[in-house]
């Protein structure tokens, strides 16, 4: 446990020194508040830049607070996921490539400590970033579109953070089986896209898939009730993340000898 904490502390320090603790929250915040704000100011923006014919009138429906929060989530679902992958895609391969792992792994470092400490450090950044982003989105939602209960926001955070956890587990998993960062990025995105595609095509059978989380979160906000589907999606997401983590440790270990 002490060794785990040593590695975790090193990861935290590294992510601080390479500014991940700065740019990730900033980008996530930006992504979260972008859509609510641009939607609100869309008429003015169109007025200012669009060469609209004289007398053209646009009627835009004002989104509800729930729709506003969901706009943020849909940004996070695409670009946010990319940011999370970019942040974590070289955590293990980078060290193998630079040769640091040759010096670190000849020390009696437990492979599971090594993998899980890295995992935990990225979870922490991404959850902190998500929290900052959602607070931003919540602030502008309240300001521009109407009240949203803070407790509801916390529920959104609690369930949506599982999606980020899943992405990080996926990225770390590919870190342990593929050497090239580009391929890690590619594979992680392919898996996420495949999951999204399967969910939308075969929704019936994939109702509890991790990528359904945001759909269920929206239902939760609309009905004010945590559905079984949401709970099951959450459980499946946690289970999948743990499986990926166990897989990562197993793959990583099998590359080296420890008997």
């Amino acid at each position: 446990m002490r060794q785990w904490y040593t590695i975790f502390q090193k990861e935290m320090l590294e992510n601080w020194r390479n500014f991940k603790w700065v740019w990730v929250p900033l980008v996530i915040l930006l992504l979260s508040i972008m859509d609510p704000i641009t939607t609100y100011y869309m008429p003015e923006i169109l007025d200012a830049v669009g060469n609209l014919p004289e007398g053209a009138v646009f009627k835009m429906p004002t989104p509800s607070p729930v729709e506003s929060i969901m706009m943020s989530l849909s940004q996070l679902n695409t670009l946010g996921v990319l940011v999370i992958i970019l942040m974590s895609m070289q955590t293990i391969t980078g060290e193998i490539k630079s040769g640091v792992s040759e010096i670190i792994l000849v020390k009696p470092v437990s492979y599971s400590n090594y993998v899980t400490a890295k995992w935990a450090s990225f979870i922490l950044i991404s959850l902190a970033s998500l929290f900052v982003g959602l607070i931003g989105s919540w602030y502008y939602t309240n300001l521009l579109f109407g009240d949203l209960n803070f407790i509801d926001l916390l529920k959104v955070f609690a369930f949506y953070s599982l999606w980020f956890m899943f992405i990080i587990s996926l990225s770390i998993f590919f870190n342990t089986i593929v050497k090239s960062q580009g391929i890690i990025l590619f594979l992680t995105i392919v898996v996420v896209m495949a999951l999204n595609l399967l969910t939308s095509v075969l929704g019936k059978y994939f109702n509890w898939s991790p990528s359904q989380l945001s759909q269920h979160i929206e239902d939760m906000l609309l009905t004010n009730h945590i559905s079984t589907d949401l709970i099951m999606s959450a459980i499946i997401t946690i289970a999948a993340s743990l499986l990926l983590l166990i897989g990562s440790i197993t793959f990583f270990q099998s590359k080296k000898i420890v008997e």
Partner: peptide
């Protein structure tokens, strides 16, 4: 073939460190 990493110290030919 047991794990003997506790007992050894090793310096690779081209040592790389966490340079930060």
């Amino acid at each position: 073939n047991q794990d003997i990493r506790k007992e050894i110290g090793y310096l690779p030919q081209y040592p790389a460190f966490h340079s930060w």
